[in-house]
Computed example of a mutant assay.
Amino acid sequence: MLEGIIIKGIGGFYYVKTGEGIYECRARGVFREDKITPLIGDNVLIRISEEDNTGYIEKIMERKSQLMRPPVANVTQAIIVMSIKKPDINYWLLDRFIVMAEHQNLNIGICINKIDLSLEDEIQQIDKIYGKTEYPIVKTSTKSGEGIEDLKKILKKNVTVFAGPSGVGKSSLLNRMHPGLELKIGDVSKKTTRGKHTTRHVELIDMDSQSFVLDTPGFSSLNLDFIESEEDLGRYFREIFDYSHKCKFINCLHHKEPNCEVKRQVEKGSISKERYENYLQFLGEIKNTRRF
């Protein structure tokens, strides 16, 4: 049997990259019986049919991680891509992606694309809001090439999920880093200023022998139904969690409680008001969800 990694799945067929090439495979029926679905990123063992040179997935190796949205396995980090213009950066959505990645215990990087369209004070605003989170922030332009090499370094020796809404330039960035990809690039709708959907399936892209990237469909929203309790939300905002240990109450939600260190740090500027306001919005959403 050959060992490989699933790089794409379409219509019940899985495309497995091995040391001997890429094979079109089907999953054995036993996986369906056990309610196990092979995922992009799975390391697998396959058996090759001599008749037509296609394969069958015989074994799925233990997964180091698993994402639900998008459904992929063995990702080591998430790069959340937002454009500064066309469409304008959406901090609410950026924090939503960060919460999702934090929940999955992934390393997180932020990529701000299309900086050739930005003003200096807009860049400074991003640094002001997210500089306290300690997430690496790389600023890129596919037109000027700025930040492209920095982004490549972050991808090295990782399986990375590129997450972010449509139209921010995820496919353009991948094409710039790996010109042979020729991924389809969508225009931004003039009516909605949102990106048009271009990526139709999840695919693992081999950037080089040590770097894999998942180019995923864009998202317009993300449900927070994976958060089990209101108290858990603060863990996914790093700077809020860092100060939460000094709050008067152990289960402080950093909303209306007295002697809250988090609120105190927001007033001091150690926690950005933008991030804190997004936290409160998410908290209200979780409360409403738990009510039903």
Rank of each mutant, 00 (worst) to 15 (best):
Pro165Glu: 06
Phe162Asp: 07
Lys184Ser: 11
Glu149Ile: 10
Gln125Glu: 07
Gly234Glu: 13
Val202Gly: 09
Thr133His: 03
Ser189Ala: 08
Leu233Met: 05
Pro165Ala: 06
Ser144His: 09
Thr192Gln: 03
Ser144Leu: 15
Val168Pro: 02
Ser211Val: 06
Ile240Asp: 07
Met207Arg: 07
Phe219Tyr: 14
Asp232Ala: 11
Thr140Lys: 07
Ser166Asn: 01
Val188Tyr: 00
Lys184Arg: 15
Asp225Glu: 15
Pro217Leu: 09
Thr216Asn: 11
Gly218Phe: 04
Ile115Glu: 04
Leu222Lys: 07
Ser118Ala: 15
Leu117Met: 09
Leu151Ile: 10
Ile137Gln: 09
Ser171Lys: 01
Glu230Trp: 13
Ile240Trp: 10
Gly164Thr: 05
Ile137Pro: 05
Gly218Leu: 08
Thr160Gln: 06
Gly186Gln: 05
Asp150Ala: 09
Lys143Glu: 15
Asp187Lys: 14
Leu117Lys: 02
Leu117Thr: 01
Glu182Arg: 13
Asn175Glu: 09
Ser171Phe: 02
Tyr236Val: 02
Leu117Phe: 02
His197Tyr: 07
His197Gln: 15
Gly234Val: 15
Asn175Ala: 09
Asp215Glu: 06
Phe212Glu: 11
Lys132Ser: 15
Gly180Leu: 03
Gly186Asp: 05
Ile123Phe: 02
Asp242Gln: 15
Gly234Asn: 11
Ala163Ser: 14
Lys248His: 06
Asn223Val: 09
Ser144Met: 11
Glu239Phe: 10
Val168Lys: 00
Leu117Ser: 00
Asp206Asn: 14
Ile185Asp: 01
Gly169Lys: 03
Phe249Met: 04
Val159Met: 14
Met207Asn: 06
Val161Gly: 00
Glu182Tyr: 05
Pro165Thr: 02
Asp206Ile: 12
Gln125Met: 05
Val168Ala: 00
Met177Leu: 12
Cys247Pro: 07
Lys248Glu: 09
Lys248Cys: 02
His178Pro: 00
Ile154Phe: 14
Ala163Gln: 08
Ile126Gln: 05
Glu182Lys: 15
Leu155Arg: 05
Lys128Pro: 01
Arg176Gly: 03
Ser189Asn: 10
Glu120Thr: 04
Thr140His: 07
Gln125Trp: 01
Thr192Asn: 03
Lys152Asp: 05
Val138Leu: 06
Leu214Asn: 14
Leu155Thr: 04
Asn158Tyr: 01
Glu203Cys: 11
Gly180Ser: 03
Thr140Tyr: 04
Lys170Leu: 06
Thr142Cys: 15
Ser220His: 08
Arg176Ala: 15
Phe249Leu: 07
Gly147Met: 07
Leu183Gly: 02
Thr140Ser: 05
Val138Asn: 03
Arg200Ala: 12
Gly195Gln: 03
Pro165Phe: 01
Ile129Phe: 08
Gly234Cys: 13
Arg194Val: 07
Pro217Ala: 11
